[in-house]
Design a protein around this nucleic acid. Sequence first.
DNA 1: CGATTCTGTGCAATAAAATTGCAATCGACA
DNA 2: TGTCGATTGCAATTTTATTGCACAGAATCG
Lengths: 150, 150
Amino acid sequence: MDKIDRKLLNLLQDDASRTNAELAELVGLSPSSCLRRIRRLKESGVISHVVALLAPAKAGRGMKAFVTIELERHGEQYMRDFLERAAQETAVTQAYSVSGQTDAVLMLRLTDMDEFDALCERLFRERSNVARYYTMFVIRTAKEVTAIPL
Amino acid sequence: MDKIDRKLLNLLQDDASRTNAELAELVGLSPSSCLRRIRRLKESGVISHVVALLAPAKAGRGMKAFVTIELERHGEQYMRDFLERAAQETAVTQAYSVSGQTDAVLMLRLTDMDEFDALCERLFRERSNVARYYTMFVIRTAKEVTAIPL
DNA sequence: CGATTCTGTGCAATAAAATTGCAATCGACA
DNA sequence: TGTCGATTGCAATTTTATTGCACAGAATCG
C-alpha cells in the first residue's frame, strides 16, 4: 500500500466509473500497471464493493432519521435479537450497538411518517424489549460521504 | 421509472461492477436497451455516483462513533457555522442538523483515540459554541448499507 | 376510429476499453 | 555489486461499451 495505491483508492472512492486509462493517467502509470493494482486492491479486500449511489429524494426516500435505543434488559442475547430484527427492516440502513447510556443506534431512510409509525410499532412497541427510544429527524445534511479518508 | 428500472437500480446498488451484458441478461433486456436505461438513470440524477467502498479496518479506520451535539446558542447561523467546521474534518463522514433536544449528529470514522481527542478539542472545546456533546462508540455493526430500498 | 408521434426495443457494426504475455526495469538485500 | 522478486510498459488480443438503424407498442390528437 504505497502512495499510488492510496491515490487510486481516493479516486475510486470518489468516482469508480472512470476508465482505467483515465485512472492510469491521473496516477501516472500505464493502463496495465494501473489495472493490476486495482485488481490487487479488490482481491485483498481493501476495495470491498463497487456500488451505485442514488439520490435519496429521487428514489422516494428523502426522509432520514436517527433513533437511539435503550433496552429494557441488557444481555448480549437481547442485544443480538434486537439488532437482528432491526436489520431486517428495509427502512433501516444502519444498525449498531454502541457504548454509553444508549444501547443501539439506527439510521432510517423513510418515505413518509406512516412508514415511520409502522416501523416504531414493529420494532419498539410490539412485544419488544425497548425501554426508551429517541428519534432525531434529519433537518439538513451538511456532509454525507462513503469515502474513508486515507 | 418502471419495474425494470427499479430492478436495474437494485442490481447497481448492490454491485455496479457488473458488465452491461450481465445486467441486460438479469433484467431480460438486450445490452443496448439496458445501457440506454442506465444512461438515462444517470442523466436524470437518480444514480448520483458510482463509487468504490473500502473495508474500514483494512483502510485503517475501523473505529466508528456517533456524536450528538447541543449548541450553546441556537441561531441558524450558529448551526451553519458548526456544521461547516464539522464537515471540513476528514474524520467526519456524516454531519446533520436534527430535530429534538439534540441539535446536530456526527458520524466519525477514526483510526485511534488520539485522533478522537484531537477532533473533540478542535470541534467541541476550542472557542466553540458547543454546550454538551455525547459520544457513542460503535461496538458492533449489525447493518450498514448504502442501498436505498425501492 | 385511424393517423401520427413518441418512446422504447433488438440487431449488427463500430469504437472503446479491459486484459494478457512478455521482456525490461527497479529496488531491497545479501 | 550481484541476485531475486516484484512492478512496470508495450503491444497484441479479447472483451465490453456504444451507436445507427429499422421496427413495435403505447399514447395523443384530430
